[in-house]
Design a protein around this nucleic acid. Structure first.
Lengths: 215, 215, 215, 215
DNA sequence: AATGAATGAGCCTTCATTCAT
DNA sequence: GATGAATGAAGGCTCATTCAT
């Protein structure tokens, strides 16, 4: 396996710098010049290697997700574990991807930024990358509900769980924050959030399932 | 119909156009020139009447909330009704403010945009305008839980409820949409969402309360 | 003598306000809106009464000089007094017109502003208004020199005297100042300046005259 | 001759064009677009290279003074020459810097513009650049007076000398001119001015000194 | 192959002037 | 006659993109 050529090294540095800058500031607020500076590359490098800011964004997305999925796959528990435990694990992974700062959270923060400020072109890519995670969530939710949920109800339960996680990101410091002041979360706080959202969601799913049964 | 000099008509048109454009695109992406065009005003009109884009934003915020609070106050149920019913009513109001397109939802959509991309100067105004709503939510949540919740748990339950509502807004078409394709919601769909979030949340709150009791 | 009509009263107030604002800020930096506000007039009043900012400037110039020449004519000493005394008196008048703040110095400050930022259209007017003063200066200078000065030398002596006075205005606070910090001058300081410039100038004139004689 | 990418040629052209335009029109009246046009650069070039109009102004100041001090230092006479001769030399240098048109007078004309319309940010720079010249003037004046002058009198003599020089600049064509029609001065005229101001000033200083002695 | 100097469309803002009333 | 609401040309600044080297 030969070492990458100098050219591709620069391209790689741009990719990493872009992931970080885009994750931190979002697509619009990210400056191409900042990315180049962070990557110690020439100011024309982005266009030379990627064609445009937007195409760089796409590649940064794909790269960041490949990295995180390689290093820290979602969930990571025994597929035979009880669904409540699997759900907790998924929530924990998601919150970590979103709330912890650093390279490990670029993918999650990119996802949040995409909620803030969607770039049309990244949509197909995003859907493809998130689908497995979504399916894991769906499976555990349906098992918790005991199969009693119809398609629509399951979708909405999934939504309720996901949104509890994702919306926290907007309080966590991506851009000047909204309610709680944008502080970054400690691991203890995240742990508490995991417990809370898990318990709340299981309660919610169960209630929905019970109502459907009753209906 | 006079073209000129008939009161501050242009100022009012600017305020309404600004509310809509800011609600639709957010502060950053809103173009002063677009607002002027929508208000059929000259390019310098915003500065002439409001001094700056930011000051216009503040006034648009205040105006939009005054309008909605006048026309469709939040909740609007008997304070002695059971908390579950009051919670449902609050969720319904919030979702309507966020998801229905048109003048009736400018305030809610401005709030969503503020989550996306906060403008520092609007913070005090925003806090003041939302506080009553927040307190209503908290009260109904605590009553549902039966006073068994500590401060922290109550806060997190409140968060879980609010986030289920607010995050939907990001699916609803503010900016090219994220997950469900940015379609606008029908009234029937909103009704379903109200039911779902209410039931899910009551289940969640109850579960959290039960866990606390058991602990 | 009937009281002026309302219209002319407004015109008069505009004239006075314009004199002050132009004297304080100069032509360019003066805002038509500020003048109207100071005169408690409508924003279109300047154009209505005077046609344009520039025409108002011309009328303000003329008015301010008519006022000062009526209230405090230059020099004001016995034409038969010794030329040194007359020169001192002229210098004193000029410095007062330039350095003292208030209505009495609007004409002088307008002159300074005209040095800073000349408006072409005011040139003929300015020349006509200043000519008498210039001639007074010239006469006393030539008498001090004892008629020995040729045309050119007399002109330059006059220039030396005038410039010592006028240039001080630039240190005196019209616009953020240059050297001494733009402080306003006390009467004692002005008195000192009068003495200094008079003595210095008489010395200068005498020296020039002596040189010419020797040549 | 390359059109692009051959060093910071455009930056240098902007600096030179800016020096000339600022010297000719002053800070306020200078248009960034005019500077760019004069430098054959794009409209955004000033911001690209200097960050803002004001920063460009600062750099133009520094550059113009460095240039003139390199090419034609002030005074340039034997420090042991008689003070009258040194004063003459200083006056000559100053007038040349102010009155001669072309690159050699940009620094002096910038100084004049700064008297007309000071830019706060340039003050420290200006003070630093002028101080040596001021001290040279003061030294020769005090020697001519024969040490008999107190601090205050010396200051005022210095002022009288400087103002005779500087105020001429306002007649010399910086902005549509004031008294003498803004004509540009020939070398012969400047020579005459040097002689006149020198003789007049020596006469003035001597007279002041004599008066102090008598007192 | 790679650079970075240079570009220019587009944004917000200012303010003298206009004109319907 | 007089008002003041409304205009619009022009200014400085930002930043993704281009292209000669």
């Amino acid at each position: 396996m030969a070492a990458r050529s100098d050219g591709n090294q620069t391209k790689q540095r741009l990719l990493e710098a872009a992931s970080e800058v885009f994750a931190e500031r979002g697509y619009q607020d990210a400056r191409v010049s900042d990315i180049c500076k962070a990557a110690q590359a020439a100011s024309g490098a982005v266009n030379y290697y990627f064609g445009s800011k937007e195409k760089l964004y796409l590649e940064a997305w794909e790269w960041a997700w490949r990295e995180i999925d390689r290093k820290e796959p979602m969930g990571g528990v025994d597929p035979d574990a009880p669904p409540e435990e699997r759900l907790r694990s998924l929530i924990k992974s998601l919150l970590h991807r979103i709330l912890v700062h650093g390279k490990k959270s670029q993918a999650g923060r990119l996802l949040l930024q995409e909620m803030r400020d969607p770039v049309q072109a990244v949509r197909p890519l995003r859907k493809r990358l998130i689908r497995p995670t979504i399916q894991e969530f769906r499976r555990s939710i349906e098992e918790i509900a005991g199969q009693k949920l119809d398609q629509r109800a399951a979708e909405h339960c999934h939504m309720s769980v996901m949104h509890q996680c994702l919306a926290i990101g907007f309080r966590g410091g991506h851009k000047p924050p909204m309610l709680s002041g944008g502080r970054r979360f400690t691991h203890a706080e995240i742990e508490y959030l995991v417990d809370h959202i898990t318990a709340f969601s299981i309660g919610g799913i169960t209630a929905i399932a019970a109502a459907k049964k009753g209906a």
